[in-house]
Design a protein around this nucleic acid. Structure first.
Lengths: 147, 147
DNA sequence: CTTGAAGCTCTAGTTACTGTAGATATTAGG
DNA sequence: CCTAATATCTACAGTAACTAGAGCTTCAAG
């Protein structure tokens, strides 16, 4: 009876785009599903679970590589939770340093904007600030791929 | 006397990589410099200024497109500062919404991690949280290219 | 049985670079 | 002046994580 789910149904159920699902299959995050006689993909419920997991983790800013790790860990229920925690903790660290950097950036932008109201470009503080490297707040511009 | 600066010197002076400078030239952010007989680029001091501007703005998270706008505006000193302000203000708005989203993400990650200490994957709360879409905090996952 | 939506594969484009290969140029030391 | 080391040149490929399109086939409804 249960005929299986078309890729479009899975897309609607999870909020992913059809192409994204195919892309995830291509890079090995999703297993290759059964195909109909006409070569169309047919999924079962478990695909929705796995894809929801991926999508939610992406929304939380995990990279596809981190998600690949998480999926591998979760596929083995005897695995120690500590490994999963480690991935999440590392991600939390990244998020926190990112917040800190954005906040210092926010301060600098606000300062720029309050100093410069009206006037001509020739005296624009925004451009001054951007030109003057010595005013730079942060030297950290290395950042992981996530988010 | 002043023979002009090699690309390597400019790179060291600004903290950019040599390839990055050539890339910026290729996409029209930097003008084509004079060349030596041997076809090597020779810059003057003004190139360092322009490149520092670009680099600093990048560090502050402006996209190359925004920087292109800013450079065009700053190249005409009669321009109204308001246009420059508008670019900076829009960027500030983006930064602030990004901070807000990261903070809610931070809360969710912390909650995940405090709920799950030790144990096996089969009962791991991190994986539970990531699997359960209904717990999702934020629905905003559209974001501009900058930073 | 027809028609239109949905699916298929494959390719190229996005952003902002980074890295490599293989050839040429410049500079410093002897 | 010659050589060796370093720097630069062009051109192309690769990165992350998709997105969009061309041109074709399949499916479901009426």
């Amino acid at each position: 009876m249960a005929r299986g789910l078309s890729i479009g149904r899975v897309a609607r159920a999870t909020g992913c785009k059809v192409q994204t699902i195919r892309y995830y299959e291509g890079i090995g995050l999703l297993p290759q599903p059964h195909r109909t006689n006409g070569n169309q993909r047919q999924y079962d419920e478990s695909a929705i679970g796995r894809l929801s997991f991926i999508r939610h983790a992406r929304e939380l800013g995990f990279s596809l590589e981190a998600i690949r790790d998480l999926l591998a860990l979760s596929d083995d229920p005897d695995n120690s939770c500590a490994d999963v925690d480690r991935v999440a903790q590392r991600h939390l660290d990244q998020v926190e340093s990112r917040i800190a950097r954005l906040q210092s950036l926010q301060r600098e932008l606000k300062r720029m904007l309050t100093q410069c109201r009206g006037g001509k470009v020739a005296t624009c503080k925004v451009i001054d600030v951007l030109s003057d490297h010595s005013l730079c707040v942060s030297d950290d511009h290395r950042e992981g791929p996530s988010l």
